[in-house]
Design a protein around this nucleic acid. Structure first.
Length: 466
RNA sequence: GGUGCCAUCGCCAAGUGGUAAGGCCGCAGCCUGCAAAGCUGCUAUCCCCAGUUCAAAUCUGGGUGGCACCUCCA
């Protein structure tokens, strides 16, 4: 398997630190609001990565944190006059529900910031002891970026004159302008934690390093973990700072490979509150099947920026429809999980830095040739068995095609409407039997008014929501 | 201003030195009572200019046009 390392900026062969095992850490959500399509994209990308790694035989330990200490959470709690935990529990549950709806499996570990405070204190203490951090008069603890010769090596940034100027101007608290807070002292009685450095709250970069040390890190290796992932925006400053903390506090670097997924834009615009509800996952899920969203969001390369729009989404859905129509044709055929030439080829292309586009082309080809054979007369026992295996592999590795194919095509149609449609179909079939085609066609138009397409097949008449 | 990324058919999108995958849309045909679905066939020389090479969408230089990060952010 090869993955693109966004720090070395090159595709590298993946070699785990420990044979057969992979440790993966991805920055998860701050639970103060609903998940948007960008959260979905990131979760989907690393869900896919996990599946591909597992398909290669690795045992993956995947940790994705829940940030439940944050100024925005506190702000929301005050605004809504609610308990902090009430807010964070609510959005954590919502996150889980929505991720499940788009087929994202739960990570192995989901550490919460509130449960990792001891690990954070330990990390800050190590940094203080080693002279990589300092505490100022009002209690804040800062990371001393000047003490880390490798600072900015991750994001390849260069400290320029402007920064140095700024440094002089705002030199009242921090030694260098780039220094970031490890611990923020809080004097009021809002939300504080009693640390060895006084009452306050952790800096936002600290959490990830601490959790990795506590839950994932190899103690005796050059790197704490194999792969660290997140959104493209996190490379700087978040990951840069994480890497600096870990490098300076412990005897190892943070991660061997860094992976960053591209951004989701909506109709060419960067996501923002001004776009209203259009970017919340929960709202998209009201309109579209979660698997359609999964398929669409994963249909282009994970590193590219993604322009979300409903027109492309519908076009993408038509591609997934083909998969489900083949499933309909094979409905009732026994499950099968044998290896096939197709599954081998599929994994091979996914192993190339998760080339989903080529994988989809392989799937389209597989579907076409299966349909072609099925269209011809005769028994197709062997083909059906293999195709079932191919479909099962697609389900396992890509997470597409998990639903009942008939239900898939009935998304968003309520029970009463279904009964009406079924009744109309029965009426139409009688008209057809009597060769009253003008009546049967007018019934079809009636059904079409529900946005429902009819298909007459040897197995009977089926319908699909358009 | 600093750093970096991108530009491939009407739309979405692979391919990164060996002569342009795939999907949507469109056209033609087979199938169908007619449709739908399915199948078959057809549809681009890769933003512009110059260079390197036997060979470039793929490498180099220049230009034009987008975008991202540098502040909370997936």
């Amino acid at each position: 398997m090869h993955i693109f390392d966004s720090v070395q900026k090159t595709k590298r062969k993946f070699t785990p630190l420990e044979e057969g095992k992979v440790t993966l850490y991805v920055c998860g959500p701050t639970v103060y609001d609903d998940a948007h399509l960008g959260h979905a994209k990131s979760a989907l990308v690393f869900d896919l990565l996990t599946r591909v790694l597992e398909a290669n035989g690795y045992t993956v330990t995947y940790a994705r944190n829940i940030t439940d200490i944050d100024d925005k959470i506190i702000k929301k709690a005050i605004e809504q006059k609610k308990d902090i935990k009430e807010i964070t529990d609510f959005y954590t549950d919502a996150f889980h529900t929505e991720m499940q709806a788009i087929g994202v499996k739960r990570p192995t570990l989901e550490p919460k910031a509130t449960q990792s405070l001891e690990a954070m204190y330990a990390l800050v203490q190590q940094l203080l002891d080693k002279g990589h951090a300092y505490q100022i008069a009002d209690g804040d603890v800062y990371f001393d970026t000047a003490s880390d010769s490798k600072y900015l090596s991750l994001s390849h940034r260069i400290q320029n004159e402007e920064d140095k100027q700024e440094r002089v101007e705002s030199s009242s608290f921090k030694r260098n302008s780039a220094d970031f807070a490890l611990w923020k002292s809080v004097k009021d009685d809002s939300v504080t934690f009693d640390s060895p450095f006084g009452a306050g709250r952790p800096g936002w970069h600290l959490e990830c390093s601490a959790m990795i040390e506590k839950h994932l890190a190899y103690k005796d290796r050059e790197f704490a973990i194999d792969i660290h992932g997140g959104g493209a925006d996190l490379l700087f400053p978040h990951h840069e700072n994480e890497a600096a903390q870990t490098r300076c506090a412990t005897n190892h670097a943070l991660a061997n490979y860094w992976m960053h997924n591209g951004f989701v834009n909506i109709d060419g615009e960067k996501m923002s509150k001004s776009l209203g509800n259009s970017f919340f996952l929960k709202d998209a899920l009201k309109e579209y099947d979660g698997e359609v969203l999964r398929f669409y969001l994963l249909s282009t390369h994970y590193r590219s920026d993604f322009n979300f729009n409903t027109e492309d989404l519908m076009h993408s859905k038509k591609r997934l429809d083909r998969l489900y129509r083949l499933k309909k044709r094979l409905f009732g055929v026994a499950q099968n999980e044998e290896d096939t030439a197709f599954s081998k080829a599929l994994l091979e292309t996914l192993n190339d830095d998760m080339n989903v586009s080529t994988a989809l082309a392989l799937i389209d080809d597989m579907i076409s040739s299966a349909n072609e054979t099925l269209d011809t007369a005769g028994k197709h026992k062997q083909l059906k068995r293999e195709t079932m295996a191919n479909l099962a592999y697609i389900e396992k590795v890509l997470g597409f095609g998990l639903k009942n194919p008939f239900e898939y095509f009935q998304f968003g149609v309520d029970g009463a409407t279904k009964e009406q449609i079924d009744a109309l179909i029965a009426k139409r079939n009688e008209a057809k039997k009597a060769k009253d085609f003008s009546l049967s066609d007018s019934i079809r138009d009636e059904i079409l008014a529900f946005n429902v397409n009819l298909m007459d097949t040897p197995q009977g008449t089926f319908w699909e929501k358009i």
